[in-house]
């Protein structure tokens, strides 16, 4: 199982903070595509150019591999401080 988390404006836009996928292995880019296929309303917000990804709480690239048990997060640019 892959656990996917959403934060801030992206979470608000999707209307959910978390989604679990039973069978997924592939890259971050492929995960974005898969989620967009499952939930067509998510496609545009998830594909937005400024949305960043983290895998297991480390910033990840589009090509970063995801395997079973990983925690993936998608979020907009950070605005702390």
């Amino acid at each position: 199982m892959v656990k996917v988390l959403f934060f801030a404006s992206l979470r608000a836009r999707l209307g959910t903070a978390e989604h679990c996928l039973e069978d997924f292995s592939g890259s971050v880019a492929e995960l974005r595509n898969r989620l967009g296929e499952l939930f067509p309303d998510w496609q545009a917000p998830l594909q937005a150019a400024d949305i960043q990804a983290a895998v297991n709480q480390e910033i990840a690239a589009a090509t970063t591999r995801i395997t079973d048990g990983d925690e993936v997060a998608f979020f907009p640019p950070v605005t702390g401080g």
């Binding site: 983290a54 910033i59 950070v78 605005t79 702390g80 401080g81």
Partner: peptide, 14 residues
């Protein structure tokens, strides 16, 4: 520390 925090620590303001 502040410059890095502003651009990479995962905080968001509403």
């Amino acid at each position: 520390i502040m410059d890095r925090l502003k651009t990479e620590a995962p905080f968001w303001k509403l």
